[in-house]
Design a protein around this nucleic acid. Structure first.
Length: 105
DNA sequence: ATTATGACTGCAG
DNA sequence: TCTGCAGCCATAA
């Protein structure tokens, strides 16, 4: 694949997340080949094309737990609704990665 | 080339 | 339990 296609690599990973599963920004970055570029994954999501299921990428909270970390409450609410629509359950505002975390290759 | 920024994280207070 | 702050890394200006 081409070199310097950071965003594309990130989008490819996100597109690989199956419906009903979620992945943290850190995981996405790692699978995209940038282990410590979690923030970059977020930066990429802000500019994500429509064919990218950005709602399946969430922020890591504590061990095996994730939460929506969007600053814009309106968009954050939309993400939560989309995820709930896919069957993701929010327990105390958080997602259990043991149950909904995407299986990594 | 340098500086500012952000949909992150993990640890400290 | 919750908020704050210092590292992190690529993009945008």
């Amino acid at each position: 694949m081409k070199t310097g296609d950071t965003f594309e690599r990130i989008y490819r990973v996100v597109r690989s997340i199956p419906q009903g599963s979620v992945m943290t920004y850190g995981q996405v970055a790692e699978l995209a080949g940038m282990p410590r570029a979690a923030r970059v994954a977020g930066y990429a999501m802000a500019a994500a094309p429509e064919d990218v299921p950005w709602q399946r990428v969430v922020g890591k909270s504590r061990k095996n737990r994730a939460r929506i970390t969007l600053r814009d409450s309106l968009t954050a609410d939309i993400q939560r609704q989309l995820l709930e629509g896919e069957g993701i359950e929010f327990d105390g505002g958080e997602i259990d990665l043991e149950r909904f975390g995407a299986v990594q290759p």
